[in-house]
Structures are given as C-alpha cells and as structure tokens.
Amino acid sequence: MALLPDVDQALVDYLKAHLLLVPLHGGRVGTKLQSTSPSVRITSLGGGQPWPWEGLPEYQVEWWGGTDVQAKTLARTGEAALWGFLGPIAGGRVTGVSVALSQLWSPDESTARPRFITQVQYRVHPEES
C-alpha cells in the first residue's frame, strides 16, 4: 500500500525557504495566522483522490501584509513561486499545479489587515508509484 505524501508540510517548508519570498515574509509561513505581518497562512481545503496513487490536494494561501503594497508584492511573488512547487517532496512527488483563484483582495474583516487570497491545487503521487 502506497501512502500519499504530506503535501501540507512540504508546501509550508517550500514557501518558508523560497529565496525570493524570505525577504518578503521573514520566515513567517505556517498553518496558523501570524500576529506579525507580512506573513503567509496555508489552509488545506481537502481535495480529491481519483486513484490510490494520485492525490489532488487543494490549498487556500493567504498573503498578509502590513500595508497593501506589502500584501500585493507578497501575493504576486508567492503565486509565481507556487508554480515552482513541482518535483520530489518527502514521501512522493508533485506532478501538476492549477491556480483556481488568483490574488483575491480580501482584507481581514475584523482588523482590516491587508490580505490577498490564492487557491491552488496540486497533483501528487507517492514515491512507490
């Protein structure tokens, strides 16, 4: 039995270490909202599994900035980086990407903190497939 890879952690690690993003988010990438901006929050939206050897995980990626310009710069750079998340990851490999929602302006309702939202889906396979 082949297990699909842990894409959640691999995506967090990838965005946290991406050379173009580090100067923009300062390492503040995770699945929980950071109190300091700019930062990136990743939320798993589930996804399909059409075959035992193929998963289609979907994510909402929130690009938070201290200013509108910071949020927009982080979103634009981050979306370009999302397309590079292809190839081997721990426990498997990523073979496809699709951005379903690009740079949706969505400031936080309670704090008005600047934020853009991206929705992305990946195609993944376990190492054994």
Rank of each mutant, 00 (worst) to 15 (best):
G66L: 01
V29D: 00
V7A: 03
D8K: 00
R28V: 10
P38Y: 03
V29N: 00
Y14E: 03
L21H: 05
T43V: 10
H18L: 06
L33G: 08
Q34Y: 14
W63R: 04
L45Q: 08
L21P: 03
A17H: 08
G65I: 05
V61N: 05
W51V: 00
W63H: 05
K16E: 02
L4D: 04
Q60N: 09
V69Q: 09
Q34D: 15
L24E: 10
G55C: 12
T67D: 01
D13Q: 09
V40N: 07
G27L: 13
H25V: 02
L33W: 12
E58Q: 13
R28C: 11
A17E: 08
G27W: 10
L45V: 02
L4K: 04
V12L: 04
L20Q: 14
Q49E: 15
V12A: 05
G27A: 08
K16G: 01
D13R: 06
A10Y: 10
T67R: 00
R41C: 06
Q9N: 10
W51K: 11
P52D: 04
V7Q: 00
G48D: 08
G48Y: 06
Y59H: 07
R41S: 07
P23W: 05
L19H: 15
G47W: 04
S39E: 07
R41A: 10
K32R: 15
A10V: 08
H25L: 07
Q9G: 01
E58C: 04
V61M: 03
D8E: 11
W53A: 12
W63V: 01
V69H: 12
L19I: 12
S39C: 13
L20N: 14
K32G: 09
W53G: 11
G66A: 06
L11R: 00
T43N: 12
H18S: 05
T31F: 07
G27P: 15
G65D: 09
A10N: 09
L4C: 11
D6T: 05
G26E: 13
L4T: 06
L15K: 02
V61H: 08
K16T: 01
T31M: 12
Q49V: 15
A10T: 08
L56P: 03
L33D: 09
T36N: 15
Y59Q: 05
P5F: 05
T43M: 06
E62W: 03
P52C: 02
K32D: 10
E62N: 11
G66K: 06
D8G: 00
T36E: 15
I42Q: 01
G66M: 00
Q34V: 02
Y59E: 07
P50S: 10
E58F: 06
L15V: 06
K32T: 14
K16S: 02
S44E: 02
H18G: 03
S37Y: 14
S39T: 07
W63E: 01
V7P: 00
T67G: 00
G47Y: 10
D13N: 13
V7G: 00
L20G: 11
Y59R: 06
G55M: 12
G47L: 07
L21T: 05
W53S: 11
Q34C: 14
V22I: 14
G46M: 01
